[in-house]
């Protein structure tokens, strides 16, 4: 299997706060990897390092064999990395369809076009993606008024638009009910297999993690304290201690 993401000895500190300490792992195509840990463990920071939002203090990141340290998020995206945010980030003044169209426009390098009209560009492709994430009925509603769970789906559609090899999903099921969570993760699972890509996701719902992840990484205070297949990690004592010691779900 092709290695899609390789992270080596990653460090990141904010002033005195060491948010990520010596994290290393790798992700293969077809894999669904969960990164878990209590609040403030450094998960989002890891994501931000991988997609270039932050610069690592030390260590290196390879995406499909290419070193991306110090690259800007927009360049990382061009390598085939899609990203959803813990706190959703969409374009509130646009409809769901337009949000996805934006991503497709960028993917097809058409964002500087002055002469064409968006209402006729990539509508079918965008609709297909929206349909795929299951919000076809919302396609013409503005993202400014959408429910949170639906926004998460919009983000997924947006992330899928550039046919990514790597999908970074920060709490993809936040704001959803249990049934909806399962549905979304099933969907993600099937996409991973049909598209031959890798997914790294964070999740506070342990049931989701252990139902769907192929591999699990556990972070605590920036450090990686366990890594491996779900059932192995589940048995890890240190992990148990953290999850029992904290009031996290």
């Amino acid at each position: 299997m092709a290695i899609i993401l390789k992270v080596q000895n990653l460090h990141k500190a904010f002033g005195g706060l060491r948010a990520v300490v010596d994290v290393s792992f790798q992700l293969e195509a077809g894999q669904l990897m969960a990164m878990i840990g209590p609040n403030g463990a450094g998960k989002s920071t890891c994501f931000n390092l991988i997609n270039g939002q932050l610069n690592p203090d030390q260590g290196s990141i390879f995406i499909m064999g290419q070193k991306v340290n110090g690259e800007k998020p927009r360049d990382v995206w061009k390598l085939g990395v899609g990203r959803t945010f813990q706190i959703t980030s969409t374009f509130p003044s646009m409809t769901v369809l337009e949000n996805v169209q934006m991503s497709l426009l960028s993917h097809n390098r058409r964002t500087k076009s002055l002469l064409t009209n968006v209402s006729r560009l990539y509508v079918a492709e965008a609709m297909a993606l929206i349909d795929l994430v299951g919000i076809a009925d919302q396609a013409h509603r503005s993202c400014g008024v959408l429910a949170y769970g639906d926004l998460k789906r919009v983000e997924l559609a947006v992330a899928l638009a550039n046919q990514p090899k790597l999908l970074l999903m920060d709490e993809p099921t936040a704001g959803m009910g249990p049934a909806e969570r399962q549905g979304l993760m099933k969907l993600t699972e099937s996409i991973v297999h049909t598209r031959e890509m890798g997914v790294l996701f964070t999740e506070h719902d342990m049931k989701v993690v252990f139902d769907y992840a192929n591999r699990v990484i556990v972070l605590n205070r920036g450090k990686m304290i366990a890594a491996g297949p779900p059932d192995e990690v589940q048995k890890n004592n240190e992990v148990k201690k953290i999850y029992l010691g904290t009031a996290s779900s």
Binding site: N51, Q53, K72, P73, R74, D75, W77, K78, R83, F85, S89, T90, F91, P92, S93, M94, E98, Q101, M102, S103, L105, S106, H107, R110, T111, K112, S113, L114, L115, T116, N117, V118, S119, L121, V158, A161, N162
Partner: peptide, 23 residues
């Protein structure tokens, strides 16, 4: 109403998002 105008609005709406979709 052209892609450029939409991109501009996208940049206004969320710089985080545009950056992460390659703009």
């Amino acid at each position: 109403f052209a892609p450029f105008g939409y991109t501009l609005r996208a940049c206004r709406d969320s710089s985080l998002r545009v950056d992460s979709i390659g703009i």
